[in-house]
């Protein structure tokens, strides 16, 4: 029916504006072994409690976000732009 996601760019917005990709995992390097890649592409944890996911604010700012959600209560504990913290770091 409803729930609100605190988008860091747009404020609290209804979840219908977002698309969920799934677990927020970091992509293995090009030289990672096949086991790493298999984990990244196929294996997912199914925790009861806090879970970090990539959400796309498709009908809003069109930014990819990392949403920390409780899988039990659906409470959103944190929501940040997926680029935050990584752009400046990786630039070095």
């Amino acid at each position: 029916m409803a729930s609100l996601v605190p988008c860091p760019n747009c404020g609290r917005r209804p979840k219908e504006e977002f698309t969920i990709k799934g677990a927020a995992l970091s992509r293995p390097g090009a030289d990672a072994d096949s086991e790493n890649w298999f984990d990244y592409v196929y294996l997912r944890d199914n925790p009861r409690g806090a879970y970090e996911e990539y959400w796309h604010h498709t009908s809003g700012c069109r930014r990819w976000l990392v949403v920390m959600r409780d899988t039990l209560t659906h409470e959103v504990a944190a929501c940040r732009d997926a680029t935050d913290g990584s752009r400046s770091e990786r630039r070095k």
Binding site: Y54, A82, T83
Partner: peptide, 9 residues
């Protein structure tokens, strides 16, 4: 957008 923002910002 995912590639540009998340994988290779």
């Amino acid at each position: 957008e995912f590639c540009a923002q998340v994988l290779w910002p």
